[in-house]
Design a protein around this nucleic acid. Structure first.
Lengths: 113, 113
DNA sequence: CTGTATCCGCCGAGATACTG
DNA sequence: CAGTATCTCGGCGGATACAG
């Protein structure tokens, strides 16, 4: 998604992935450790969490900082760029919250389950 | 996407599909016929266009009106609900346009292609 | 604790051809 | 013109197990 904004076909920013938006929400209040992300994102697997984080890191949305030692301690936090994504995100979430009932009603009308 | 706004896991509104956002752009200026959508959405196949339109119809974002006769004439247009999606969409597109260079730079830094 | 390594299933998306 | 009918493919996302 976000594609078509510039007329190109490129799939932009990994946003559109299943977990990306929720992950941003988990990070909006400050740095979080790997295991602190596994809990609120219930049922995400470590592999998928790693993939999502790495992708967002490549896009400059998330910063990873590893504190050496034992046990290992790694923290993830939103970069300023990642933080700026919260604005359009909130616009979308506001829309969704306002219009979810209408969408569900429309579905119900087409699929009288 | 849009998931997580209410804490649920439901994949919301079909928005997140590959063509949905571009389709909305094509409809924002008024009704369009099936064949008029195939052209600007270059290389979309009839099958996929139909699937996308049907899904958006189910969600109450698009209205389909078939004028009987020969040759057949069918028009699609955004409902008020679909139109209201333009606001958050534009917020996202504005963000993307503003920060695309930063994202590309971040990718370049991680993948010195 | 913070990941990696395999393997797998599902489904969106496309190619191609055909129909009312 | 406006679709439908099959078939196929790739890749995200998940399950499970293991490692530093």
């Amino acid at each position: 998604m976000f594609a078509g904004c510039d007329g190109s076909h490129a799939p932009l920013f990994r946003v559109g992935g299943k977990w990306t938006w929720r992950l941003i929400r988990c990070l909006e209040d400050g740095p979080r450790r790997f295991s602190e992300l596994l809990v609120p994102l219930r049922y995400i697997t470590p592999k998928v969490l790693t993939e999502t984080l790495r992708a967002m890191e490549r896009d400059g949305l998330v910063a990873r900082s590893a504190h050496p030692g034992m046990p290992p301690r790694v923290e993830y936090e939103l970069t300023p760029l990642g933080h700026s994504l919260l604005d359009p995100m909130n616009a979308c979430c506001t829309w969704a919250a306002a219009h979810l009932p209408a969408v569900l009603a429309a579905r119900e009308a087409h699929e009288p389950a």
